[in-house]
Amino acid sequence: MIHDFYIDNINFKKFNEWKQEKENGLNGKKKNEFQQKSEDKKYEEWLEEIFTQKKKEILNKLKENKNINDFYPKHEELQNLPQNSVLIKISFTLKKPYTSKDEGEFHIIEGKIFENPIVRDKFTGLPMVRPSTWKGHLRFAADRVEWNDENEKKKIIRRLFGSEPANENALKGRLYFFSTFFKDEAERDVITPLKRDTRTPARGPIPLEVMKPAKKGEFYLLYIPYPKGDDFKEENVKEDLEFLAKALKLMFYTYGFSAKKTSGFGVVKDLKEKDIEVEPEDKRNFFSILYTKENKTVKDGA
């Protein structure tokens, strides 16, 4: 609906009008070259120039009028959630690039075609990390958390992330993920895949869109401890949060949350205490391992 509003309020210049203005604005050789072009070629240029420009105008208006904070839970909303619910906000700065694979084969930025585009939000046009992407990468890190009891670890993972879809006794996870929007624009980069054994190029360079190091983003995660059935135990909350903090630490500092993470993509710079907000405040200590000196022992975290 918001796209329709902006499109309806934009007057597209008709092809013949554009062609006449274009020709009148050229002189000498350039004017002659333009006149020699076929109507199909002129029409192609009109489409690229007009619609690329209008798309940029639409996205700029969306960025100005769409408040991305509307997508995130607010403090007052937390009061209506079950007891022991926790909201974690982490403001991070990329240490290595971040990339993701959009459904499209290319993306046009200021008239230039970018192959392997990054995922963007349909409403704002901003580069983003989808909730499902966060969940997948955190689940990957959770499997690699060191825990004393392996069976207990599996139970915690099931509580946090839910059971497998094929499981007859399906259980919804206690974690709710939110999109992360990058306010900066993605940039073009090139990577060259290497062979595992010889570390020589496996094929030619691959162009792709990335968020470069030093770009900032905000991660939101909501923990809701339910259901409170016969199996519910108050001490589970403490276990869940301790385990969750360890998984977050591995994801942000070691494994990353990006495609190409085997190349080190998607890890962040050291977090400081001010970068992490936890509500309610009495649950903050569970996540102090994300910004204490203990980080120095974590691969890629220093």
Rank of each mutant, 00 (worst) to 15 (best):
residue 1 M to R: 09
residue 13 K to T: 14
residue 22 K to R: 12
residue 24 N to L: 00
residue 30 K to A: 13
residue 31 K to Y: 02
residue 31 K to H: 10
residue 35 Q to S: 05
residue 37 K to L: 15
residue 40 D to V: 12
residue 46 W to N: 10
residue 49 E to P: 03
residue 50 I to A: 09
residue 51 F to A: 01
residue 55 K to P: 05
residue 57 E to S: 11
residue 57 E to C: 06
residue 57 E to T: 14
residue 62 L to K: 06
residue 62 L to G: 06
residue 63 K to L: 15
residue 66 K to M: 14
residue 67 N to D: 14
residue 69 N to W: 15
residue 72 Y to L: 04
residue 79 Q to G: 12
residue 79 Q to Y: 08
residue 80 N to E: 13
residue 80 N to Y: 12
residue 83 Q to T: 14
residue 89 K to D: 01
residue 90 I to Y: 04
residue 92 F to D: 03
residue 95 K to G: 12
residue 98 Y to W: 10
residue 98 Y to K: 00
residue 100 S to C: 11
residue 104 G to R: 13
residue 106 F to Q: 13
residue 106 F to T: 12
residue 108 I to D: 04
residue 109 I to E: 05
residue 112 K to E: 10
residue 112 K to M: 08
residue 114 F to L: 12
residue 115 E to Q: 04
residue 119 V to P: 07
residue 124 T to D: 02
residue 127 P to G: 14
residue 127 P to A: 10
residue 128 M to A: 14
residue 128 M to D: 05
residue 135 K to P: 04
residue 138 L to A: 03
residue 139 R to A: 02
residue 142 A to L: 06
residue 143 D to L: 15
residue 146 E to D: 14
residue 148 N to R: 09
residue 149 D to M: 14
residue 149 D to W: 03
residue 151 N to G: 10
residue 156 I to G: 04
residue 161 F to P: 07
residue 164 E to G: 00
residue 164 E to N: 05
residue 166 A to F: 13
residue 167 N to F: 05
residue 167 N to H: 05
residue 168 E to A: 15
residue 170 A to T: 13
residue 172 K to M: 10
residue 173 G to T: 12
residue 174 R to P: 02
residue 175 L to R: 12
residue 178 F to D: 08
residue 180 T to F: 03
residue 182 F to G: 02
residue 185 E to A: 09
residue 186 A to H: 04
residue 190 V to H: 12
residue 198 T to A: 04
residue 199 R to F: 07
residue 200 T to Q: 14
residue 201 P to E: 09
residue 202 A to L: 15
residue 202 A to Q: 07
residue 205 P to T: 11
residue 210 V to A: 10
residue 211 M to P: 00
residue 215 K to C: 11
residue 217 G to E: 00
residue 220 Y to Q: 00
residue 221 L to N: 06
residue 221 L to A: 10
residue 222 L to M: 15
residue 222 L to E: 13
residue 224 I to D: 03
residue 224 I to S: 00
residue 226 Y to P: 06
residue 227 P to D: 08
residue 231 D to M: 14
residue 235 E to M: 09
residue 237 V to Y: 01
residue 238 K to C: 02
residue 241 L to S: 00
residue 249 K to Y: 00
residue 250 L to R: 06
residue 253 Y to R: 01
residue 253 Y to M: 04
residue 255 Y to H: 07
residue 262 T to M: 13
residue 265 F to Q: 01
residue 266 G to H: 05
residue 269 K to C: 08
residue 271 L to F: 11
residue 272 K to P: 00
residue 277 E to K: 03
residue 279 E to C: 01
residue 281 E to I: 02
residue 287 F to W: 01
residue 287 F to K: 00
residue 291 Y to L: 02
residue 295 N to F: 03
residue 295 N to S: 11
residue 297 T to D: 07
residue 298 V to H: 02
residue 300 D to K: 13
residue 301 G to C: 09
residue 302 A to E: 11
